[in-house]
Amino acid sequence: MIPDLGKYADSVLSSYAASFILLAMLVFLTIRRGRKARHALEAIERKKKSDG
């Protein structure tokens, strides 16, 4: 399945691995922070509404 990368296999595969890890971390941390912010705002708005 993986094409024959010859003597440069390490370079090519490590480039892809490093990039995927960095992009996955960026997306994961972005979504996690976004969800936390959304829940925090919803909680305080709910509290504000219940307090009148």
């Binding site: 960026l26 997306v27 972005t30 979504i31 922070r33 976004g34 912010a37 959304r38 925090a40 705002l41 305080i44 708005e45 504000k48």
Partner: peptide
């Protein structure tokens, strides 16, 4: 899409801080 998502997060965080300060 990441910038749109993260800008939304920053807006919500600022609104939360403003509400907490008001409270």
């Amino acid at each position: 899409v990441l910038v749109l998502y993260r800008t939304g997060t920053e807006i919500r965080l600022r609104r939360t801080r403003a509400l907490m300060a008001r409270e």
